[in-house]
Computed example of a mutant assay.
Amino acid sequence: MTAHPSSPPGTHRSPFHVAAIQTVTGTSPDDNLARADELIAEAARGGAQLALLPEYFAMMGRHESDKVAIREQDGDGPVQRFLADAARRHRMWLVGGTLPMWCGDDKRVYNTSLAFDPHGQRVARYDKIHLFGFTRGEENYDEARTILAGKTPVAFDAPCGRVAMSVCYDLRFPELYRGLGAGRDGQGVSLILMPAAFTYTTGQAHWEILLRARAIENQCYVLAAAQGGKHENGRRTWGHSMLVDPWGELMGVLPEGEGVVAGVIDPARLAEVRQNLPALRHRVL
């Protein structure tokens, strides 16, 4: 006999508090880490159990190649120690948006996102797979000049459920997230992490649309931590760090400047959306 529960599956989990940290990162790693530490503490005081830092939170250099000079070996380095220590001190899950990691090439790095548990233990590493390229007028970006693309999608388990890692330009590739959710319980991931440094031009046009689309089609929460403002190196980023719920509704947003966007991953809301519109179970391809 098949049991029919009175409440949707997945509601046994408790609400899980998360925070997206928005920065306007400069050229000094020491100054950037000090400011990140203050914002992590602010998120912790607000009750965050998981905090997400943006892409390039440790440095945005004056030149694309500057990141190569501060790259770290896997397993040790000042930025990795900073993240592990902050996670442990605040007893939170902490995801360091990205930092430059050794890739075996003297002129390039991996653009790496690292996740730490509340004990300061690293639980996941993701090397950004999709590399941004954009040219319009005086704007010209080609990440492949200084970054080596990763090859492996990554997700990890946290108290809120399965968490998908991704970075910035990955947002434009929906197959990444569907692949991460396939083959488990048919329900996909509970939370997508999106640390980013979207340009003002592309962010204004597509950032919110893409974030809401990824939330809707995967019926999950999306936590996006962005760079948001005019940087010391002259670059302007779009900002608008936000938390999006599984129905595509905005739960909080910070348009520009440094700060924290906080919210809750509600398992009952997640289950409700998936029960009312079981699109994930209706998948054919």
Results as ranks from 00 to 15, higher is better:
4 H>T: 13
9 P>R: 13
10 G>E: 06
11 T>Y: 01
11 T>M: 05
13 R>I: 00
15 P>I: 01
18 V>E: 01
19 A>V: 09
20 A>N: 04
20 A>Q: 07
21 I>R: 05
21 I>Q: 04
23 T>F: 00
25 T>Q: 10
26 G>A: 06
28 S>W: 01
29 P>K: 01
34 A>V: 05
35 R>N: 10
36 A>L: 02
38 E>V: 10
39 L>H: 02
41 A>C: 09
45 R>T: 10
47 G>S: 05
50 L>R: 02
50 L>Q: 03
51 A>L: 04
53 L>K: 03
53 L>V: 07
53 L>A: 08
59 M>V: 07
64 E>G: 13
66 D>C: 09
66 D>G: 03
67 K>S: 07
68 V>W: 07
68 V>D: 10
72 E>D: 01
75 G>C: 08
77 G>H: 04
80 Q>H: 03
85 D>E: 14
85 D>A: 13
86 A>C: 06
86 A>M: 15
90 H>I: 01
92 M>E: 05
96 G>W: 08
98 T>Q: 02
100 P>W: 05
101 M>I: 12
101 M>D: 00
102 W>H: 13
104 G>N: 04
106 D>T: 10
106 D>M: 06
106 D>N: 09
111 N>Y: 00
113 S>N: 07
115 A>K: 09
116 F>C: 05
117 D>Y: 02
117 D>C: 04
119 H>Q: 14
119 H>Y: 01
122 R>V: 02
123 V>G: 08
124 A>G: 04
125 R>M: 12
130 H>S: 13
132 F>P: 00
136 R>V: 10
137 G>C: 03
143 E>A: 12
146 T>R: 07
146 T>I: 12
152 T>S: 11
153 P>I: 09
153 P>L: 15
154 V>Q: 14
155 A>C: 11
158 A>T: 07
160 C>E: 04
160 C>A: 12
161 G>H: 03
162 R>D: 02
163 V>K: 07
165 M>D: 03
168 C>V: 04
168 C>S: 10
173 F>E: 11
173 F>W: 08
177 Y>K: 02
181 G>E: 03
184 R>T: 11
185 D>W: 02
186 G>D: 10
188 G>V: 05
188 G>S: 07
192 I>W: 09
195 P>H: 08
196 A>C: 09
200 Y>A: 14
203 G>L: 09
205 A>N: 10
206 H>L: 14
206 H>E: 15
207 W>I: 00
209 I>W: 09
211 L>E: 07
211 L>A: 15
214 R>F: 00
217 E>R: 10
219 Q>R: 15
221 Y>D: 05
222 V>D: 03
227 Q>L: 13
229 G>W: 07
233 N>V: 03
235 R>L: 15
236 R>T: 15
238 W>S: 12
243 L>M: 08
245 D>M: 07
248 G>S: 07
249 E>S: 12
251 M>A: 10
253 V>Q: 14
254 L>D: 08
256 E>T: 14
256 E>Q: 14
256 E>M: 13
261 V>F: 05
263 G>A: 05
264 V>D: 05
267 P>Q: 11
268 A>G: 06
270 L>S: 06
272 E>L: 15
276 N>A: 15
277 L>I: 11
279 A>T: 11
282 H>Q: 14
284 V>T: 13
285 L>Q: 07
